[in-house]
C-alpha cells in the first residue's frame, strides 16, 4: 500500500467520529430493540397492569386493585397447582442432573464410542418436548401399556399409571428425567476442562477413583452443576406440553398433574379470566426469580470458582 493511500485511510479513520459507530450499532440493534419494546417489555408492563384488573378480552379491563392476588389466597386449585409444580421441579431436576452427571463421568476419559453415546443420550432432550412423545407416554404408562407388560413378567400387578392420581405426576417426572442428555453434554464439556495432571498427581499419591471423584471432579465441576441447576429449575417451572397432552388438557386425574402453567392456561384461555391469569404469571415470575436468587446466594457456600 502506498504512503498516500495509507495516509488517506488514516485520515478517513481519524475523521470518523465515535458517533458514527454509535449510530451503526443502533442500526444493527434496531430489530432487537423494536422486539424488546413491542414483544417483551411492553407486554410485561401490560400484564403487570392487567394483573390489577378484571378483564375478559371482550370488555375493557376494570381496575380492581389487589383483588386478583387476594383471590389467590382462597383458591384451592391454585394451591394444589403450586404443590404439584413444586414436587415436579424439586424431584425431577435433582434426579435428572444426578443421572446426567453419572453418565457424563462414565463417558469421560477417552471411552471408545463416546461421541456415539453422547449423541444417543442427547436425542431424548430433542424429542422430549414433542406432542408425539407425550402420546407415547400415555400409552406406555396406560392400563394396558408397555410398563404393565414388563411388570406382568415380574409378577407385579399393574394399574393405569396415567389414570391414577397417586402416580400420574410421577409419569411426568420420569419424562423429565428421561431428557437428561442436554445437561449431560454440558457436564461433559465441563469435565474436559479439568486438567489431567490433577488426576495423575492424585493417583501417584494413592487416591482411589472414588476419592479422586470426591476431591477433584466434584469441587471443580461445581460451577457447571450450579449452572445446570439454575437452568433446569427455570425450565421445569415452565413445563406445560407434557402435562397438557398426557392429561388430555385437563391436568387430571383429580388435578394431580395440574401444573401451575396449565392452571394459568385454563384461567386465561379457557375461562378468559385474563386479569387473574396475568396476576398468576407475575407470581410465577416472582417464584422463579426467588428460586434463582436463592440459588445464587446458596452457591457462595458450595460452588468453587478458580482463584
Amino acid at each position: 500500500m502506498s504512503a498516500i493511500s495509507e495516509l488517506s485511510t488514516l485520515s478517513k479513520t481519524r475523521a470518523e467520529p465515535a458517533r458514527r459507530e454509535n449510530l451503526a450499532a443502533y442500526l444493527f440493534l434496531a430489530p432487537w430493540l423494536v422486539g424488546l419494546v413491542l414483544i417483551t417489555v411492553g407486554p410485561m408492563l401490560a400484564s403487570l397492569y392487567l394483573a390489577f384488573t378484571d378483564y375478559n378480552l371482550l370488555e375493557a379491563p376494570t381496575w380492581i386493585g389487589v383483588e386478583n392476588f387476594t383471590r389467590m389466597f382462597a383458591d384451592e386449585r391454585l394451591h394444589n397447582s403450586l404443590r404439584v409444580t413444586f414436587i415436579y421441579v424439586l424431584v425431577s431436576v435433582p434426579l435428572q442432573l444426578a443421572l446426567a452427571l453419572l453418565l457424563a463421568v462414565v463417558l469421560d476419559r477417552g471411552l471408545r464410542g463416546m461421541a456415539f453415546y453422547r449423541s444417543v443420550f442427547y436425542l431424548p432432550s430433542l424429542l422430549g418436548s414433542s406432542v408425539a412423545i407425550a402420546i407415547l407416554w400415555r400409552q406406555v404408562f396406560g392400563g394396558e401399556g408397555l410398563i404393565n407388560h414388563v411388570l406382568g413378567w415380574l409378577g407385579v400387578a399393574g394399574r393405569s399409571w396415567i389414570a391414577d392420581p397417586e402416580s400420574a405426576l410421577w409419569t411426568l417426572v420420569t419424562l423429565n428425567v428421561w431428557t437428561f442428555g442436554a445437561p449431560m453434554v454440558i457436564f461433559l464439556a465441563g469435565l474436559r476442562q479439568i486438567p489431567r495432571m490433577y488426576y495423575e498427581a492424585a493417583a501417584v499419591d494413592g487416591a482411589g477413583p472414588l476419592r479422586r471423584f470426591a476431591n477433584i471432579t466434584m469441587p471443580l465441576l461445581t460451577p457447571i452443576i450450579f449452572f445446570n441447576l439454575v437452568l433446569q429449575i427455570i425450565h421445569a417451572f415452565q413445563a406445560f406440553t407434557q402435562a397438557f397432552v398426557v392429561s388430555g388438557g385437563t391436568g387430571g386425574p383429580s388435578d394431580s398433574t395440574m401444573f401451575y402453567t396449565l392452571y394459568l392456561y385454563e384461567r386465561g384461555f379457557g375461562k378468559f379470566d385474563m386479569g387473574y391469569a396475568s396476576a398468576m404469571a407475575w407470581v410465577l415470575l416472582v417464584i422463579i426469580a426467588v428460586f434463582t436468587a436463592g440459588n445464587f446466594v446458596a452457591s457462595k457456600y458450595w460452588v468453587h470458582y478458580d482463584d
Partner: peptide, 16 residues
C-alpha cells in the same frame, strides 16, 4: 430476557 418465562408475556401478546 433469555430467562423470562413466556407465560408473563402471553396474555398481553395475545391481546395485542
Amino acid at each position: 430476557t433469555i430467562m423470562l418465562p413466556i407465560h408473563v408475556l402471553i396474555v398481553p401478546q395475545y391481546v395485542m
